[in-house]
Every structure is written in structure tokens, then in C-alpha cells.
């Protein structure tokens, strides 16, 4: 099954479960959770169902395209169901069946507690193992933006490259066929190499720090003007800059906590501003 077919089938499946098929968000980010379709919609009382693909950048995971399984950027398929339905595990297993992963496989739910400190978010759940391989992060959100959630949303995040590599029987994600004519290698190898080199060797640590400080200040201005969505975009930028600094090893353990706290403060304020608006 082609990678684009996996995306199509998951889209069809989740649309059938009442999900809006959303779009990736155009700010660099480390995970689909950071898309406003998840971050803001998990807050407040309104029911919500959404599914979308999210390219997610993790600079420290970059391996110059030399490692068959590690990527600077990977594709997440993100599903959020709010409130979490009672049969959510079965519904999820139904999505795997749609991809041709049936009862001949060993699918297991292994404890994994998820946390995104810059988002002030955490939840309990599992990593889902397909024959020993982690293919999905499955989380009942308990907090988002530092706010206790009720109702609780469940987040299902599929790792698209891994699942597709498994379905295609290839050992390297770069051998994955995205379309009949194009491989993952053709699409992303250059980007993997260049982005890894940039993150690990070239990025200017001082510029990253300055950019972080300036984006943070701008986010505060936007918050002061009541424009929390604009502020949130800037907080995401801070988060990505922080990840770049981290990959460049330009952050000490002590500074690390401080920088995370600064981003968390922005996302927390954006969350409370949003709640104030929707609960008006």
C-alpha cells in the first residue's frame, strides 16, 4: 500500500467516524498536537472530531538521511475524538483493519504516559505495538495549556512512515513508495541531509537565542492585544527554535527548564484567553 493510500484510507475511515478532515498547520512544529485543531479544540466543553496529516519536525532526531528509521521530519496522522468514546480502542483497531492489519498480527497497548511540557499538556495512555513495533501513540489528554480538561479528548497519532514501511515490507523508510512513481527518498532525502546539517552544524546559536527572545516578546505583545491565535503561532516558533538550540547542544540542563517554562507560559496564556472567549 502506497503511503498516499494509507493517508487516503485513514481519511476515509475517520471521516466515516464523524471526523472533520483537517489540514496541516503552516508553522514549524514538533507534533500534530500543536496544530490549533487539537490544541485549542481540546479545551472547553464542545464535542470535536478531527483527523489530519501533520509533518512534524524534530531537529534532534535528524540523522542526515543515513539512518533507515530516524528522521528530522516525519509525518503524523493525527486523530482527536472529544469526548473519548467508550469503544475507542475497537474503533482504532478498525482503522488498522482498513489498512489491512488484521487478526494475524499482534497488536498491543503498552503503557506510555505522554507529556508535552511546552504545551502544558499531559495524558495517560499507551504506545500501540504492531508485532513489537510502535506505530501509534494513544493518549487520553488530561491537561492542555495547563488547563484541566473536561470532557477528556483521546488523541491517536499514527507514525505514517513506519506503518507504511511495514506494510510495504521495506527496511528503510527511504524505500517507502509514496506514489506509484515517487519514493520517500526522492521526496525527502535531500531535506533530511540539509536540515540535519543545519541543525547540528550550521545553525547560529546566538541567532537562535535572539530569534527566540524576539519571538517571545512579540508573542507577549500579541497576547496583550488579545490576539491569542497570533501569539500561539509565535509560541510555536519559539518551540521550534528551542528544538534547534537543543539539537545544536546550545542549551544547558538548567537553561532548558527555563526556556521550556517561557514557552509554556505563552501557551498557557493562549489557552486561558481562548477559554475566556469560547465560554464568554
Amino acid at each position: 500500500m502506497l503511503l498516499q493510500d494509507v493517508i487516503f484510507r485513514l481519511g476515509e475511515y475517520w471521516a466515516g467516524e464523524g471526523c472533520l478532515i483537517g489540514l496541516p498547520y503552516d508553522v514549524e512544529k514538533g507534533a500534530g498536537t500543536m496544530n490549533p485543531l487539537t490544541f485549542f479544540r481540546a479545551l472547553g466543553p464542545e464535542p470535536w472530531r478531527v483527523a489530519y496529516v501533520e509533518p512534524s519536525r524534530r531537529p534532534a532526531d535528524g540523522r542526515y538521511g543515513e539512518n533507515p528509521n530516524r528522521l528530522f521530519q516525519h509525518l503524523q496522522y493525527q486523530v482527536v475524538l472529544k469526548p473519548s468514546p467508550d469503544n475507542v480502542q475497537d474503533v482504532y483497531l478498525g482503522s488498522l483493519e482498513r489498512l489491512g492489519i488484521g487478526p494475524e498480527h499482534d497488536v498491543r497497548f503498552v503503557e506510555d504516559n505522554w507529556e508535552a511540557p511546552t504545551l502544558g499538556a499531559w495524558g495517560l495512555g499507551w504506545e500501540v505495538w504492531l508485532d513489537g513495533m510502535e506505530i501509534t501513540q494513544f493518549t487520553y489528554f488530561q491537561q492542555m495549556g495547563g488547563v484541566e480538561l473536561s470532557p477528556v479528548s483521546v488523541e491517536i497519532t499514527y507514525g505514517l512512515e513506519r506503518i507504511t514501511a511495514y506494510l510495504q515490507g521495506v527496511e528503510s523508510v527511504f524505500d517507502v513508495k509514496v506514489s506509484p512513481d515517487v519514493t520517500y527518498r526522492q521526496l525527502y532525502l535531500d531535506a533530511e541531509y540539509q536540515q540535519s546539517r543545519y541543525a547540528f552544524e550550521v545553525a547560529d546559536a546566538r541567532w537562535l537565542q535572539e530569534a527566540f527572545t524576539s519571538a517571545e516578546a512579540e508573542a507577549r505583545r500579541a497576547l496583550d492585544a488579545g490576539l491569542y491565535l497570533a501569539a500561539y503561532d509565535l509560541a510555536l516558533r519559539c518551540s521550534h527554535l528551542f528544538n534547534l538550540m537543543d539539537a545544536r547542544r546550545a542549551v544547558g540542563v538548567s537553561e532548558r527548564m527555563g526556556l521550556i517554562e517561557r514557552i509554556r507560559s505563552l501557551t498557557h496564556q493562549a489557552a486561558t484567553a481562548h477559554l475566556a472567549r469560547v465560554e464568554g
Binding site: 539512518n67 528509521n69 530516524r70 499482534d106 498491543r108 508485532d131 527496511e171
Partner: peptide
């Protein structure tokens, strides 16, 4: 130790995962 599934399929999958991890 598997929980469900066809042993041949599950074994191959697990071998593949371990291979990838050891390659890492």
C-alpha cells in the same frame, strides 16, 4: 512473548523491529 496473531507473521515483524533498532 506474543499475545495474539499468527506466529510466523508476528515473528517476522518482531525480527524486523529488532533489526532496525540494532541498526540504529
Amino acid at each position: 512473548v506474543m499475545n495474539h496473531g499468527d506466529e510466523a507473521v508476528v515473528r517476522l515483524g518482531n525480527e524486523r523491529v529488532l533489526r532496525a533498532r540494532l541498526a540504529d
